[in-house]
Design a protein around this nucleic acid. Structure first.
Lengths: 196, 196, 196, 196
DNA sequence: AAGTAATCGAGACGGTACGTCCGGTCTTCCT
DNA sequence: AGGAAGACCGGACGTACCGTCTCGATTACTT
């Protein structure tokens, strides 16, 4: 897929331009949301021609999500200390904290945009959701092996129960992403899945 | 605010026009999503002038949500049979069923749009979320009074646990809104909150 | 065609805008030729939106020719003094003089553009050529009636002989539109068509 | 200018490429006029890089005219049989015939383009007009020596009278380039310049 | 054989203009 | 006052060419 083809013919893509576009897009995104990250505006801000952006990103959403990941390329480590409640709380609290900042609004808009842009949905699922869910699933599996939680669980459903409330509040805004949220959610889920 | 002014001066608002607009908007919404329900397009389809729409609806989102409720004005009854698990399952299964059809896509787009349109968020919360949550809260309260579930619960958190997975799947599309979903979710939540 | 329809519904067309566009287009046309009279540039200069221009003029050429006639709306009178040689010379000399100024370059470009824009050709023929040829034909007909020139002439060919050299020099630029040109051309033609 | 430099260093220009470009340009020119003969399109069609074209031709017009001459490299012989009327008619009729075909439209567009491209005008005059006018002038001069026409004539004006009507009709399109045109024009001119 | 020099294909890039869509606002007349 | 019709500005869209640029590969002539 990305095997080093050796030097391809033609002028190579300018890394300078790639970065300028991503930075400009991230800036606009944070300043004024997705609406402000129009191709036109990003091109102007980055000092780059529109065509160049269109050559590399198929849509505003695709660019926005690249810019988002570029700006918020987080470590995304998931410690496995053996204390399931603590590990899950830590991980989810980190998500809550991130979403409380500007990144939350941007992510909410990206999810919103994905409703009318299937490609964007794909990217979101594969680059954002999937890694987090895989890490979480691993932790849960090990907890099951340790006998801490039941073994007959549908992990996908469990993870929905863990993550959904965060995204739900983010998207609907009916309640804040408060400090205790992560803890409460994890507690509620564990109450249901713990071995008795 | 809505005191009966008695017959106000001037030409009264045309009910015919109101309906034509809502029907046209709903049609476009279903055919092509929010993007297709532009004020321009709806006006053309309804045979109505743009200004008339602007007079009565502040934005595309506001119009869309009105059209949504106009088309899918559902009964939204919530039976309280005394069997908590059944009542909750019934209610949530109804939501899942509704979201599986075209209404789901539209609702997803409306939630998406609300991310950049605070007014739309308000309407969504007050006219869509709130009634459902109030009915659900009443049922839960009565179950607590009957001693079926713990009394120290934060009902808001419980309702998040009940509803969030549905919206989460709707919005992220990482997993289908399958038939057993409602039952599984309710089961999971009850496992955690039932009196032991 | 332009019967007074009575007051048509809707906001009436703004005369201010119409004039601003024509003046701006004429300015650009004279400053930098057809190339400078881009819709974009004219809109900017006139303080008018592009869409407004597109609503009223189908193409750059159509706008340019309107602007040309707006700026150079000449009297186009053709005196018939009874002295054929003088009348023709006067008329053609006026054309030569006009074409020697900036109007010449613009007209040349318009004719050029008409080669790839049939609509523009139509306008040019009906609004520019036809009136001049009709007036000239009338003068020639009266001269024939007076017995000054032969009566068996194909007037269209005669008029081609009169006008063609002017446009030929304008378009090809192989020789100047000098002062004596009109006189020489008329003399040459009359030598051939005068009654002997 | 084109002295044989002897073998210059470096890779010699590829004749294959030169021909491919000219053929491609001529094709596009005939299919869709000057507009279709964009450098971009010609390069694509010829399987040649844009830069290569830019290296050898300064502009679209220059390329177009080269392509025109390449495709329509005509013999351009001018017989001098001693019969002036016939010789002129033959020559001009050949021009009319050529212009009636596709070459006419192309030539018209080239003349049009020359209005905003001085270089193109130069090429048109030196490579197209001049040779024809020189041959015609020679014929006329010999006729004057034979005493067939007046000797005090300004040959440039006479040639304008001969050729202008053809180009005039080509450019303005107000009348067709019909069969008798050449004959009529020559007759008209000779009527005026013949010795009496 | 190594070096030098030009040609060529491929393709990235900034820029200008294109013609279109939609959002909002406005003006006018009609009901 | 409500409503239809439609003109208007502004902003963005996605596309077409322009002319320039950076590469690597090729093809000759010159030491």
């Amino acid at each position: 897929m990305d095997a080093p083809h050796g030097p391809r013919p033609g002028r190579p893509r300018s890394e300078r331009v790639r970065l300028a576009v991503l930075e400009a897009a991230a800036d606009r995104l944070i300043e004024g949301g997705l609406a402000a990250a129009s191709i036109e505006a990003v091109a102007a801000r980055a000092g780059v021609s529109k065509v160049t952006i269109y050559r590399w990103w198929p849509s505003r959403g695709a660019l926005a999500i690249d810019a988002y990941f570029h700006r918020y390329r987080q470590t995304n480590e998931f410690e496995d200390t053996g204390d399931l409640a603590r590990d899950l709380s830590t991980q989810i609290a980190a998500l809550v904290t991130a979403f409380r900042g500007r990144a939350g609004g941007v992510m909410a808009e990206l999810i919103g945009q994905a409703q009318s842009d299937p490609t964007l949905g794909d990217v979101l699922r594969s680059r954002w959701l999937a890694p987090r869910r895989q890490a979480t699933a691993a932790v849960l599996r090990r907890a099951a092996e340790r006998g801490e939680i039941r073994e007959d669980l549908d992990l996908d459903t469990v993870m929905d129960q863990l993550y959904a409330p965060i995204y739900y509040r983010l998207a609907m805004g009916h309640a804040p992403l408060d400090d205790g949220l992560a803890q409460r959610v994890v507690q509620g889920v564990l109450d249901g899945i713990r071995r008795r």
